[in-house]
């Protein structure tokens, strides 16, 4: 959360055209306090407490972007984004194409998503596949504190509309983040840090201006190197995947874990490169499996690595049901145990 707040503040300081807008983002600092203190620093001209109307927020953000601003929109919860669906799908995604490339709409839409926090209905959903399916939108999701800062800066700098999904279960992750940190200067996929958050090295050089390195937003990252099975995951499912990998390591099974980071476009090269080595792929996400990101990734990897695959790719995700009540959400979410079973399953072939 601190990393996101710092990223927003730094982006606003760097570029006077960056605006933050959404429900309760100003005086309250957002329901998760991600935008805390921004109103005090930048004033109501740049931190807009909007009326309670998601379509209105996204629609007016499009208008502001057409006028030359870079709005960063906060949607309060994943389940509340659907009233804005038409503006996101029919307008935000298509204006660049509709105008034959003359107009760009650099809107960043921040959406807290995912479950695991004991919330009521509509507050724990994973709508990423709905947006990844739409040409014209980029969909990214950080899973670590360090990525939260870097990727939000990159998303704001990106000239395309970006759906920025924040795993809300990670909001209270207090790992130190590097602001600014190496990924601004070096390709992210090379900086395969084994730990979740790489603390900033003292005296590290300041980053180049945001905008120069936003292309790194597209890259997946090998979070935990291994050689036996590839586990591709993202967002809130990274932590349980890493836990499952540790448990497998205790049994002498060397599991590689990849954080996809970008869901549109998908960095197939990184995953396929890993599967070329391991021959086995497990895909983990919180969203229900059917019609999800996992199916797309499985198809793409199978197409590239068919002769190298030792087992069919296995997907682990939520069940095909509306997100369940909080008391039983652990039965819905893919935990280390189910991920471990999937690893066993692909090793049985």
């Amino acid at each position: 959360m601190g990393a996101l707040r710092a990223a927003l503040g730094d982006a606003m300081r760097t570029d006077p055209k960056v605006l933050v807008m959404g429900e309760d983002v100003g005086r309250l600092g957002g329901v998760f306090r991600v935008t805390d203190h921004l109103l005090a620093e930048f004033g109501p001209q740049r931190v807009l407490d909007t009326p309670l109307a998601e379509s209105g927020i996204v629609g007016t953000a499009i208008g502001l972007a057409l006028r030359g601003f870079r709005p960063v929109v906060e949607i309060q919860f994943d389940g509340f984004v659907y009233p804005a669906f038409d503006q996101l799908v029919s307008q935000l995604a298509k204006i660049h194409s509709r105008s034959a490339g003359r107009l760009t709409v650099p809107v960043t839409v921040r959406i807290p998503y995912g479950g695991g926090i004991g919330a009521i209905e509509h507050h724990s959903e994973s709508p990423e596949a709905l947006f990844a399916h739409v040409a014209g939108l980029r969909v990214v999701t950080p899973a670590t504190v360090a990525d939260a800062y870097t990727m939000l800066r990159q998303a704001i700098a990106c000239p395309d509309p970006v759906i920025f999904l924040e795993p809300k279960a990670r909001y209270w992750d207090t790992a130190p983040f590097a602001a600014p940190t190496a990924p601004f200067a070096t390709p992210v996929h090379q900086a395969s840090a084994p730990s979740l958050a790489a603390p900033a090295e003292p005296g590290s050089p300041p980053p180049p201006e945001a905008g120069a390195a936003w292309t790194e937003l597209n890259r997946a990252r090998i979070v935990r190197p291994g050689g036996l099975v590839t586990v591709a995951t993202y967002g809130p499912a990274l932590a349980p995947s890493l836990a499952a990998a540790e448990a497998a390591a205790a049994q002498g099974r060397d599991v590689e874990v990849i954080d996809l980071r970008s869901l549109s476009p998908l960095d197939v090269e990184t995953v396929a490169g890993s599967v070329e080595r391991t021959g086995r792929l497990v895909i983990v996400h919180e969203a229900p499996v059917f019609g999800g990101i996992g199916g797309e990734l499985a198809a793409l990897v199978t197409q590239r690595c068919f002769y190298r695959l030792e087992a069919p790719p296995v997907r682990v995700g939520g069940w095909h049901m509306p997100y369940p009540p909080a008391k039983v959400e652990r039965a819905f979410l893919p935990g280390p145990e189910r991920i471990g079973q999937a690893i066993d399953q692909v090793l049985e072939y």
Binding site: S55, G56, V58, G59, T60, A61, I62, G63, L64, A65, L66, R67, G68, F69, D86, Q87, S90, Q91
Partner: peptide
């Protein structure tokens, strides 16, 4: 009606 919000946002930007 989809463009009406864009116009309002543009005007806010003005």
């Amino acid at each position: 009606g989809g463009h009406v919000l864009h116009a309002v946002g543009y005007a806010m930007g003005e």
